[in-house]
Design a protein around this nucleic acid. Structure first.
Length: 433
RNA sequence: GGCGGGAUGGCUGAGCGGUUGAAAGCGCCGCACUCGAAAUGCGGUGUCUUCGCAAGAGGACCGGGGGUUCGAAUCCUCCUCCCGCCGCCA
């Protein structure tokens, strides 16, 4: 949510950002309602002032019949206006919540993913002396990915992982937690991007269910058809650890000396993937359930952008340690999320599909989420302000698994394990006969 | 799931339906004392919002929603969460 005062004073900017994000919110209607709302509020406040005055007249004694009569009249008048205000408020709330965040200056303007821009590339797509298999062929061959039984038992877009794939996942988790809690590495990356804080990340295992009201505050409730909704409890299964890490400091005022707050959470993520039938149908690229390590960070506004730069540097470091060719992509206005101010993705090379595919994303939300979650910070002697929030993938297990399997495959179908992971598991995944 | 007790400012914690936006303590800020600090003393310390250049004035907020009343932190009701006991359970 944006500040209504800001919208009032910068209507043009807000309209332009909305247009670039393909968002059809009617800003003029919002401003009209805002004006009506305030006018009515003044009328109500004046009537209440009268009522308070009247009540003050007989603080201790009993009121006269005349005073009771006046009070009753005021009451009906106020409640009539309040009813009217409630109606306006409802419509107003709907509108203001649908206003998207502004976009950063360096965000490319574009209608959809065709407008995304590759900022930099690392490594060259590997040349194979044989025709590389895709991860699903490898998974079946190695006996580590199973999707037929899971389809019968759980439905489409689920899977079983076995043996080497499981060890690989746990190795990745161990690797990512070791890296993000290592102050030396954070320091080195922070220095590189000019981020003033070397603070390592705090590991978290968050809940995987969030109440509807919380998801609304996170601006992640919609589209509801993409969420698993638990009717009995008016709650949802989270689509990312972000959904329960973001609200961790809801309604708090954080002392500035405790900023930045950095979390690395690990959880299962659930997505209904409504409207994607037929898209990426085979393999484990697009699943209803996958595990993910997710970064979430809270900073003072002036450090929000360099925090995102640090986070992207961490993502790059992680895939570079795995030695997977990848590119960093600036997501354009039309392809980014409504709460995003700036979105950067990382796409890893996937030989089996012969293209780069998204494995990481990084969202800088400015104070868009913090405003509804009511998360503020206070500087010494300073004013309270909303914090800025960043969230980003560290590793999304399905996708990074694909990148490893496809990039590290051998001619016989076995897979060599990346060096960075060898201290956590055996050095290769072999075909089990 | 059953029964009982709670939710008040940054924190702890008072609060007969009408001088309670809210006692007291802690914390925090300023000043005094001190070479400095501690201790002590004095003063100040909520958020949001409307009008206003400002000074200031008004309104809302005591977990959340609804209600009773001339008047609600205080009474009723629903919801959420916390604590205790019983039941069930990884």
């Amino acid at each position: 949510m944006l500040d209504i005062k800001f919208i009032r004073e910068n209507a043009d900017k807000v309209k332009e950002a909305a247009k670039n994000k393909n968002n059809k919110v009617d800003i003029d209607q919002l401003l009209k309602l805002d004006e009506e709302k305030r006018g009515l509020q003044v009328e109500i406040d004046n009537l209440r002032a009268k009522r308070n005055e009247l009540a003050k007249q007989n603080k201790s004694g009993k009121p006269t019949d005349e005073q009771i009569k006046q009070g009753k009249e005021l009451k009906t008048e106020v409640s009539g206006k309040e009813e009217e205000l409630k109606k306006i408020n409802k419509e107003y709330a709907k509108l203001i919540y649908s206003v998207p965040n502004l976009i950063s200056k360096d965000t490319p303007i574009g209608p959809d993913e065709s407008g995304n821009k590759v900022i930099r590339k690392f490594g060259e797509p590997a040349k194979f002396k044989f025709k590389p298999k895709d991860h699903m062929e490898l998974g079946i061959l190695l006996g580590i990915i199973e999707t037929e039984k899971s389809a019968k038992i759980s439905g489409a877009r689920f899977n079983y992982l076995f043996s080497g794939a499981v060890l690989l996942q746990f190795a990745l988790i161990q690797f990512v937690f070791d890296t993000l809690t290592n102050e030396k590495i954070i320091k080195q990356l922070a220095k590189k991007v000019g981020n003033p804080s070397n603070k390592p990340f705090t590991p978290v295992i968050p809940p995987v269910i969030a109440k509807s009201e919380i998801m609304k505050k996170m601006d992640r409730f919609e589209p509801l058809e993409d969420r698993y909704y638990l009717e009995q409890d008016d709650s949802l299964l989270i689509g990312s650890a972000e959904h329960t890490l973001g609200p961790l400091h809801m309604n708090e005022v954080i002392d500035e000396k405790n900023l930045p707050i950095r979390y690395i959470g690990y959880s299962t993520a659930f997505r209904r993937e409504a409207g994607t039938y037929g898209k990426d149908a085979t393999g484990i690229l697009r699943r209803h359930q996958f595990d993910k390590a997710e970064m979430e960070s809270f900073t003072a506004p002036e450090h929000g952008l360099s925090e995102q730069n640090l986070i992207v540097a961490i993502q790059e470091y992680l895939v570079q340690q795995l030695e997977i060719p990848h590119q960093v992509v600036a997501i354009c206005s039309g392809d980014m999320g409504k709460p995003d101010f700036r979105q950067i993705d990382i796409e890893c090379w996937m030989p089996g599909q012969n293209k780069y595919r998204e494995t990481h994303t990084s969202d800088y939300m400015t104070d868009y989420q913090a405003r509804r979650l009511n998360i503020k910070y206070q500087a010494k002697g300073g004013k309270k302000e909303y914090v800025h929030m960043n969230d980003a993938t560290a590793f999304a297990m399905g996708r990074i698994l694909i990148a490893i399997l496809e990039n590290y495959q051998q001619e016989d179908g076995s897979v060599v394990v990346p060096k960075a992971l060898r201290k956590y598991m055996p050095g290769n995944i072999k075909i089990i006969k």
